[in-house]
Design a protein around this nucleic acid. Structure first.
Lengths: 211, 211
DNA sequence: AGACTAAACGGACTGCGGTCCGGATATTAT
DNA sequence: ATAATATCCGGACCGCAGTCCGTTTAGTCT
């Protein structure tokens, strides 16, 4: 097992600086707090899709440049807002109790992973969608890479013998927020039905054999 | 079999008006020709991602409003540019020779469909990606609905007995242009490897059975 | 031909994400 | 305390997709 570090995503509300030489300047820290607070307010008021960088800057009482220096982009802002929930989810499927965490058979872990992911998207879907929107490298995002590796690893453990890397890509595609949100919110499919279909999918992929 | 109409997408370079009372006005027809011609030039020069609506309007010598009246949106423009290739592809998998068209066993048709789709994306991927970008209802686009129904139908014919609608959604997700382009252009996977993984996927999905 | 009308035109305008750089400020060294 | 400096701030600015509405024009009717 590789020594993968947990939570490679942006530090959430924690005050710790990322790296480099000196610590974070006090005004910068203060502004980050203001921005995160204002952002959460705005998400609650307008929904994730209704949050604009201008509104956020105005609400927090800072300049627009400050917003972009802090978060890099709109997607970066959304990732930051998600980071706590994301870290908690990562902890559960990597170190938590079975069937999601280690201890259960790989196929059951895969099934549980999909089910948990669907629930996650039902709760944070808008943020998650916004976090990967327009990002030219949404597939390289640390969280996405981690999920991919996890699925790939479970496929391998379950005895899947043909290109687990690509199969993990296909399975990840099924669980993308945009698709799941559309299925539930527009086409009115129940999350339970999505979970059952995921179960069918992974069971057949792991179990079946193709010449 | 339902009487699905072929090519429900935007009429390409054909001069025919869509419907309604009167025919298309002559200046409108002239401007559409100018716009399509200019658009193809720009795609060749700048790539699909480099085409902006302003550039297009200037190149065609028309106002910006005209561009949007004609195509509705940037995505609409891209769909129009794709319509010929798209119609040809649709014709092939619905009425063409086996194994893609009718006559071959469903599983072989599914395998061929993925392979052809991958080749299609290798050729028109940028346009296809741009055609479904930012569209709030990319999943409702006529072409996407048609593919979905086709896959669903093949799954049913192959004896798949559990929620073919959702399974078709998962399979479609694997074939999305953005993902395939990223796999080939950024991660340098060969199209052949993608095709083989698709073959594994559909074979297992169709063949295996899950309690 | 001349008047009438519905359709098409065009470009100014808005809102957005993102960039840039001159000026302000916190921190450190003296 | 004062000076030096690296960092941060702010908002003007850009390019883009998409909208709006006053103006022009093609087709039609007399």
């Amino acid at each position: 097992m590789l020594g993968v570090s947990l939570i490679p995503i942006r530090s959430g509300s924690s005050p710790a600086p990322s790296a480099g030489s000196g610590a974070e300047r006090s005004d910068a820290a203060r502004n980050r707090e203001l921005l995160l607070c204002a952002a959460r307010q705005l998400v609650e008021e307008c929904g994730a899709d209704g949050v604009t960088m201008d509104k956020l800057a105005e609400r927090a009482g800072v300049g627009k440049g400050t917003v972009f220096r802090r978060f890099g982009s709109r997607a970066g802002l959304m990732m930051t807002l998600l980071s706590d929930a994301e870290a908690e989810f990562q902890g559960r499927f990597m170190f938590g109790p079975p069937p999601l965490g280690p201890g259960a058979p790989p196929l059951e872990r895969l099934i549980a992973f999909g089910a948990e992911r669907i629930r996650y998207v039902m709760e944070y879907g808008e943020l998650a969608r916004a976090a990967e929107a327009s990002l030219h490298n949404r597939f390289e995002a640390p969280a996405a890479v981690l999920w991919h590796r996890h699925i790939e690893h479970l496929l391998g453990s379950a005895g899947f013998d043909a290109d687990p890397w690509l199969m993990a890509m296909s399975l990840s595609a099924t669980l993308e927020p945009e698709r799941l949100l559309h299925a539930v919110r527009v086409q009115h499919l129940s999350p339970e039905r999505l979970e059952e279909s995921w179960r069918q999918l992974v069971t057949r992929v792991v179990g079946g054999a193709a010449g």
